[in-house]
Amino acid sequence: MQQVITFPELVTIMEQHPISIASRDDVLGGVYAAQGWEGRYRELMRLGRDLPALPEELYEYSCPVKGCESEVRLLLGITPEGGFWCWAHSEARIISGLIALLLGQVNGLSAAQVCGLHLEAEMEELGLMRHLSPSRGNGLKAIINAIQSHACCLSQQA
């Protein structure tokens, strides 16, 4: 079962994720600018290659998001100031690239802000909706559900 990390020494590491609201334009700009599906998927694969895997100390607390085609590790955390941070990674590059797109929308926002986001809209805008279809056992939908359900739950507690 997914838990939300609040240990200060771990959330300090989580806040270091290179992809956040603050860095999104620099990191994700290439995907938006890419032309055609080939360009977009090349950018996604590049993003996926660069997405950091969970370091050992975080991996220990992360949960597998089971899928048929590749396994994703996921960890959620909240800072004392209320910043919501997510780490996720897959060995497959395209799914990792899609994860990077998600992280660029949520990392560093408050739980309430994340709860109010429509994360699928960005996928739709980029023509990536096929990755959210229920027939794809890749867990992207499960990651979105985990992020949003925890964010909404946390914002109600706050």
Binding site: Y41, S90, E91, A92, I94, I95
Partner: peptide, 10 residues
């Protein structure tokens, strides 16, 4: 990764 090949084939 096989999944990347599968996506690029699709």
């Amino acid at each position: 990764h096989p999944q990347d090949i599968g996506t690029l084939m699709d």
